[in-house]
Nucleic acid binder design. Structure first.
Length: 812
DNA sequence: CTCCCTCGAGTTCT
DNA sequence: CTCGAGGGAG
């Protein structure tokens, strides 16, 4: 027999045994026989590498480990489901039923039909993945990621024995399947037993175990964990008809050999009562199911009706998740600490007696702010109900007042001062717990802040940590712990100091830190030789070299990241990008007055003055200068965007100067009369009063100009605006911005472009992409399965383009 | 002035 | 993930 025939035969046999074992749960051969066949196949493939098939069972044992997961873009975005009844007391049967009636009514009203069928299914507590089969062969698997881009985990997914590497029956040319990777309860228990036996830490719950296994860079490790996959939808099918119903989709996938829940667990129901009955039935079965679930999912069964309902923001309107009430537990509040954030925000945190809830042990829970503590009246010593909100963030739900410690002390009707302090209502301290500066709470704001600013050790450490973070300067190896130590020991006072650290500094710091952290608790018991052995080790030097390399590598960040890294209040990733895109150079951002910044899209008065104030503060100026001196400089500075020029029109700037009574309309009239900002700046009081505008307006303007600082600000604003306009691309380059001032809305799936690509193209041409259609929308770009946005656009008379139309418009 | 949506900020645990 | 604030549209 030729090797290729032999390989094909072995592969088929092994996959059949696989199915028997993992899918049908009825093995026909002993494990030893299976292993023997697999080894034989492996040997043959090693001898004839060119004959290794893309669906060979040997792929299931994993190959060489990866350095990192590759990013992959989802052709069809992976959406999340909106949650029914997210914050109500879902334990109440009647309320639950009422909500289901409302959901069903909404759907029927939107569709204009008397009755809708819903395909219902358990909601798995696992990880969503997307699988691509081409001509029946599994070619790619990706995690959800942010919905648009995920990680390529193909090697790991191939190790899932119950998942076919080649589809059975007649597979379509291309098939994209959405489903959940999870670990069955029994596999989880077995894994944890093995972990314990090997002296490794057990996983907290099946979900974590599945996540940890799927995220292994070495697929050989994943192969030793037993993961499962359950399909819940088709994202795309080519070369075969797309089933007309959701239930049909699942049946079709099962027919191709892809696992899904048994039909009894995924019926179609036809009204709110059916949804309710299904919810109650699954809730009752929850403990007996072989996997963890956290609720149920309702989907409109007919695909035609799904398309009609369309999408809102990032969630389909034809589907909803109905989560089970979060598991709750009782514990006690041992202390209420106050944390100081990067912006000085003081956050009370409840330190709790450890309690296992929702799959993890919780010891901390944020109390958000003083009002929240007061509203719930949480006190030290209280017994509280804790749950994990959205199954992630621990939350104190309420206080069990009946269990509040009695103040009564036996034999007395008074109680000791200590008792009083322990059980009194909690109040935020008037001083910062770290630096002692006084605490201020702005009128109408929920958060209280430490006024220490730069002087506060906590704020400084947090600011430096923020600076080094992954989405900012991305300094490899500089974690929270070491930032704190560097600040504590005085090596780093401001961010520029990072760039002056030496090898010796870092080694000394690490030794001290390690000695403090590990040595302290067992200082006396540890023999001195051990300590020396640790210090003599080469590791601190290697670690320090790596960190220095990381710091050096961060010297040329994109401007947007540098701006974000500075930690200016109200300036996050998006605002930093706006600033970088429009102004192009750090110097322009630093010099821009608030009125100019407020002329940029999505920047209003609050953000603009936060920026202007930041750059005017001498400490900050010095810190930035020091950074530049240390060799930190944005790598991508460019001339201001051509789209900036229309934003700097005199009337826009005038309206943003903060002159009393100078509204947008008045500013436009004023601009047409004086022409430029510079000419207004030189007008004397009489000339201003003489302008043909209402007396109250000209008087307010004249008063404002009488203030020398204001007049100077106007002059410098005029100068900078002119400078920016001159520096921006002119004439022909300006024509490269055919979409300047136009607003687009995207809907549906475009044939070749992803949403992100289309957005980038539009923005590159100077256009703006908005989320929803309104009268101000210039064009709607509609793709396949466009929903309500298309209807609205038609109703409002907004022009509708397809992808070809968009490209044609760009080409002009 | 009142919605609605996006962005920023803070937080937990593995 | 959730809350609150800011920005912009109606």
């Amino acid at each position: 027999m030729t090797p290729d025939r032999k390989i094909a035969e072995l592969s088929a046999l092994i996959e059949r045994y696989n199915r028997e074992y993992y899918v049908e749960d009825a093995p026909t051969v002993p494990d030893a026989e299976y292993d023997r066949l697999l080894r034989e196949l492996e040997a043959l493939e090693t001898a004839h590498p060119e004959l290794r098939a893309p669906d060979s069972p040997t792929l299931r044992v994993g190959g060489a480990p990866l350095a990192a997961f590759e990013q992959v873009e989802h052709k069809v975005p992976m959406l999340s489901l909106s949650n029914l009844f997210s914050d109500m007391d879902a334990a109440d049967f009647a309320a639950r039923h009422a909500e289901l009636v409302a959901f069903d009514e909404r759907v029927r009203r939107e569709l204009g039909v008397p009755h809708v069928g819903y395909a219902v299914m358990p909601k798995f507590d696992g990880l969503a993945v997307s699988l691509v089969y081409e001509n029946g062969v599994l070619v790619r698997a990706a995690t959800r990621g942010d919905g648009a881009t995920g990680e390529n985990v193909t090697d790991n997914i191939r190790t899932i024995r119950s998942l076919p590497l080649r589809l059975t029956g007649t597979p379509p040319a291309r098939l994209e399947v959405r489903g959940e990777v999870l670990m069955l309860k029994k596999d989880f228990e077995r894994l944890n037993a093995a972990q314990l036996a090997a002296g490794d830490k057990p996983f907290a719950n099946p979900r974590n175990a599945a996540a940890g296994s799927l995220r292994q860079l070495d697929a050989r490790v994943t192969a030793t964990r037993r993961l499962s996959f359950f399909a819940y939808a088709i994202a795309e099918v080519e070369g075969a008809p797309w089933p007309a119903t959701h239930q049909g989709e699942i049946d079709y996938l099962v027919g191709l050999g892809i696992p899904a829940v048994p039909p009894a667990l995924r019926p179609v129901v036809d009204d709110a009562a059916g949804l309710a009955a299904y919810y109650e039935a699954i809730l009752a079965q929850r403990a007996t199911l072989p996997y963890e679930i956290d609720g149920v999912v309702y989907k409109v069964n007919q695909r035609a009706q799904q398309d009609k309902l369309g999408f809102v923001a990032r969630a389909p309107r034809f589907a909803a998740a109905h989560k089970f009430p979060a598991e709750e537990a009782l514990t006690t509040v041992e202390a209420i600490d106050v944390q100081v954030g990067r912006t000085g925000a003081l956050t009370p945190v409840a330190r709790l007696a450890p309690v296992f809830v929702g799959g993890v042990t919780v010891t901390n829970a944020t109390l958000h702010n003083e009002d929240e503590v007061q509203r719930k009246d949480v006190r030290v010593g209280d017994t509280v109900v804790v749950r994990r909100a959205g199954d992630v963030i621990p939350e104190v739900v309420s206080v069990v007042l009946a269990r509040r410690p009695m103040r009564a002390v036996p034999g007395a009707d008074l109680f000791s001062p200590a008792e009083v302090a322990l059980h009194d209502a909690w109040r935020l301290p008037g001083q910062c717990p770290v630096c002692g500066s006084h605490v201020v709470r702005e009128e109408g704001e929920a958060v209280a802040r430490c006024s220490g600013g730069f002087a506060c050790q906590a704020q400084r450490a947090q600011a430096i940590r923020h600076f080094a973070g992954r989405r900012m300067m991305d300094i490899d190896g500089l974690g929270e712990r070491y930032v704190e130590k560097l600040v504590d020991y005085g090596y780093v006072h401001r961010v520029a100091d990072l760039y002056r650290l030496t090898l010796a500094d870092l080694v000394a710091m690490k030794r001290r830190a390690d000695a403090e952290d590990s040595g302290e608790p067992q200082d006396d018991s540890a023999p001195p030789e051990d300590l020396f052995a640790a210090i003599d080790d080469k590791t601190p030097t290697r670690w320090a070299e790596n960190l220095l390399a990381g710091i050096a590598a961060s010297r040329r960040p994109p401007l947007a990241r540098l701006l974000f890294a500075l930690g200016i209040r109200h300036v996050g990733e998006a605002t930093a990008k706006t600033l970088a895109d429009y102004l192009g150079r750090l110097d322009y951002v630093r010099r821009a007055p608030a009125a100019l910044l407020a002329a940029l899209p999505d920047i209003g008065t609050v953000v603009a003055s936060s920026l202007a104030d930041f750059f005017a503060e001498p400490n900050n100026e010095a810190a930035i200068d020091a950074l530049l001196e240390a060799g930190v400089a944005p790598a991508d500075e460019h001339v201001p965007s051509a789209a900036l020029v229309p934003l700097l029109a005199p009337e826009r700037l005038l309206a943003r100067l903060g002159v009393p009574r100078l509204t947008e309309t008045r500013a436009a009239q004023l601009a047409s009369q004086v022409g430029t900002l510079a000419s207004l700046a030189v007008l004397d009081r009489r000339a201003v009063i003489g302008l043909p505008l209402p007396a109250e307006v000209v008087n307010a303007l004249a008063d404002w100009l009488d203030e020398p600082a204001n007049r100077a600000a106007l002059t410098s604003l005029a100068t900078l605006a002119d400078e920016l306009a001159d520096a921006a691309p002119q004439g022909e380059d300006g024509a490269a911005q055919p979409f300047a001032g136009l607003t687009f809305v995207l809907t549906g799936t475009l044939p070749t472009l992803t949403r992100d690509e289309a957005k980038t193209m539009i923005e590159a041409a100077g256009g703006k992409v908005a989320g929803s259609v309104s009268k101000k929308t210039d064009y709607l770009v509609a793709g396949e399965a466009a929903g309500s946005k298309l209807d609205k656009a038609t109703a409002l008379g907004v022009k509708v383009l397809d992808e070809a139309g968009l490209k044609a418009l760009l080409a002009i």
